[in-house]
Nucleic acid binder design. Sequence first.
DNA 1: ACGTACACCTA
DNA 2: GTAGGTGTACGTC
Length: 995
Amino acid sequence: MKNGDHLFLVDGSGFIFRAFHALPALTRKSDGLPVGAVSGFCNMMWKLLTEARDTSVGVTPTHLAVIFDYSSKTFRKDIYPEYKANRSAPPEELIPQFGLIRQATRAFNLPCIETEGFEADDIIATYARKAEALGADVTIVSSDKDLMQLVTANVHMYDAMKDKQIGIPDVIEKWGVPPEKMIDLQSLTGDSTDNIPGIPGIGPKTAAQLLEEYGDLDTLMARASEIKQNKRRENILAGAEAVKLSRQLVTLRTDVPLELELDALVLERQDGPKLVGFLKTMQFNSLTKRVADACDCDANAIDPSPISVEWGDAARGPDLDPKDTPTNDTPAAESAQAKASADGTDAQGATPASLTASRDAVFKGQEIDRSAYVTIRDLEALTQWIADAKDCGLVAFDTETTSLDPMQAELVGVSLALQDNSTSPDSTKIRAAYVPLGHKAGADDLFSDGLKLVEGQIPLGAALDALKDLLEDTSVLKIAQNLKYDYLVMKRHGITIAGFDDTMLLSYVLEAGNGTHGMDSLSERWLGHTPIPYKDVAGSGKSLVTFDRVEIEKATAYAAEDADVTLRLWLVLKPRLVAAGLTRVYERLERPLIPVLAMMEERGITIDRQILSRLSGELAQKAAAFEDEIYELAGERFNVGSPKQLGDILFGKMGLPGGSKTKTGQWSTSAQVLEDLAAQGEPLPRKIVDWRQLTKLKSTYTDALPGYVHPETKRVHTSYSMAATTTGRLSSSEPNLQNIPVRNAEGRKIRTAFISTPGHKLLSADYSQIELRVLAHVADIPQLRQAFADDIDIHAMTASEMFGVPIDGMPSEVRRRAKAINFGIIYGISAFGLANQLSIERSEASDYIKKYFERFPGIKDYMESTKEFAREHGYVETIFGRRAHYPEIKSSNASVRAFNERAAINAPIQGAAADIIRRAMVQIEPALTKAGLGEKTRMLLQVHDELIFEVEDEAIEAAMPVIITTMENAAMPAVSMRVPLKVEARAAHNWDEAH
DNA sequence: ACGTACACCTA
DNA sequence: GTAGGTGTACGTC
């Protein structure tokens, strides 16, 4: 190799992964062998070689090699065992393609290079530097940032898929540092995808800025103590070792032993027949033809060449479990789907797994063209879209409003998205539109005539009439993201949506525990697309405007995109649901709960503001009195609410012995620590604990709750999140009505402020010991089953079994310990946790646990098998089939692993209890209606194992048994419990007395 | 204006 | 030891 030669180094491994995710998932027609990445590779190489050989333009390779990773065992793993440890196994469809791409490389008559112990990047680096030293030019065909450190005046990179060259200025533009400082930058930032540590809080932007300021990494690390920002300085000083390690990991080796010398990489002539034979085998028909034409050979005369491929059962998807086939309890959605898929391109007879794969292939990374979005400004156009939606049988739907709170939100517009079957049968095309209805403009001040509706919008009433026809039609499937919101908004505008799916809930059922389920994150995850951020449209902070002030053109791009993305997500997620056998969970436990929760939120609950304001006054007085005493005892005034200042007083000035430390190294001032100090006779800590309790009640409850009273309904409307927890529980916010105090008298006063309307009572019905009953069922523990069957005190029974104490006349301390152990079991017990809870030595706690497992060996078995299941599958399941994912269950960090194990043990128990109450909630309204109580009994709140109703006085006696029976039998018929469920109910004028 | 730490309320 | 949400202080931008 000499001056003027040009070496092309193709990053084969990088290309495989990129092509696999970016390109449609093609399968070989004859047998379904996945070949998408192979096809992408062949097309790219053919284009590269054809164009590269055209000496009239661009660069011409004289030498070319395709480089691959050999295996995961590299020198980096030796320095750092966690290197790439977080990588999951490659997708099944990709596995056979690794070998095929190497065979393709040989068919192209190109050297195929891999070296044991080194990554492709190191081999590329070695060749590049050697060639450069000999005066040759180098082009690295890759867009991987890890290779950018190699870029020089003579070494370029080339992104084949974007057809873009990357040189020194491009690296600077992208990363803020020149190529020779990429190592420094990557050492600071680390790389989460390769599990390379870095400095916490330092991303590419900060790293570039630091390197700009200090020149290079060594100088930066030497002078790190000069950094002004406290956190940043400490992080960098503390992370010096991690930086050293990261530098070793990201620095590419240029001394890899090379099997083939540079001269052996000379670009040979194309062997036409050899290549055509391979392409025929792969059944790449159009490329075969092009290559045959270019090489002047007759494709028909060439036989397909034999290939070797490792492709077995693993490549095929799981079979559909017949018990999980979609049920017919929502005929709307199912028939609409049948219609939709008949109209779509998805081949008849596609299996759930194949449909999953093909949908992924089409929509992952597909360009979304916002310029094609339409603004619908007249009734005729809207009517046409509605007619088209009815033809399709499914439509994605989204509302734009003035508020995030569906009880306050006014409708500003709606958007629709359809699979476009009109222009071509290619239904992967999607069209989307925005219907502005309430956009306003003008000055909103005293001197002008105020805000006016913008011209060119359909009158709200007429649009709602037209939409009602679509949204209430059960034969058209409406698809929305977080539908409960839109359901409530439309309900308040007189429309009850029927026949629907919710992409957020699809994601939740499929992936609870794996990240969040908001649209933006789903779009990133499943479509590789970043939707327009809301703040780009409506501003943020002081410049934030309500959506009705957004220009219609801007609103169209944002809103239509939401419907577009929602439809794409549905197309990708819905087949996965069937393939994973989770249809039943979705259809029984999630989808039907949407209208139920929407009704509960809409109803709200009355609070007595007088009671709260009186409580606030009392709490303020008591807290002030405590403050005086606290300042007296401390000898100075300080902010009692500041743990930092408090710590300085207690452990600095007063010299009290510190207990535990927080994770930031501060002395902890937790209630536990303060109680311990109080027990030693210190007067101040107790006062702090009491002060905290009072101010907590005041700020979080008595002061805050009145702010949530709705101006029109005069009631408090919480918001339930259906997709916030890993286990299947709901969560409540704004305000959280699932954490209203109950455990002590002072706090319980707040519950007296939750009252029924005149002529009604609040009825509270709660499951007794539901999680222990679920445990007894799941782990099948004879003594527990017996105790629940006999309805005896379960904690006393446990104590009796463990300590041999008779239940009659049992000391309360003995029962208390057994109770703590029972809870501990549900929480995935540890000696550390139990010791903490009971304030005993860890060794003693350890003895208790040992004894417990001896008495109840089935519990130990359950725990072990649950952990094993979680390790094998990455998730655990409830008896109703709900999954909770624990992606970190195999973490190399022992405490992370143990935490995940405890959570995995707890999830099937907590989750099954959540499933049961969800079933009860779905069944309860029909049961009440059937009993003629539908109008008289309204479900208002859910608190995990408790349902609160507002019941007309004269209906209470009739409603109580209906509610109790429905709740106690909620698991049936899906699961026949081995243990009875028990529900206790009470009615009173306020929540405190009803509970 | 926003994010994190801490503390504390619930099942 | 499980699962959540919220208020205050405090740091950084």
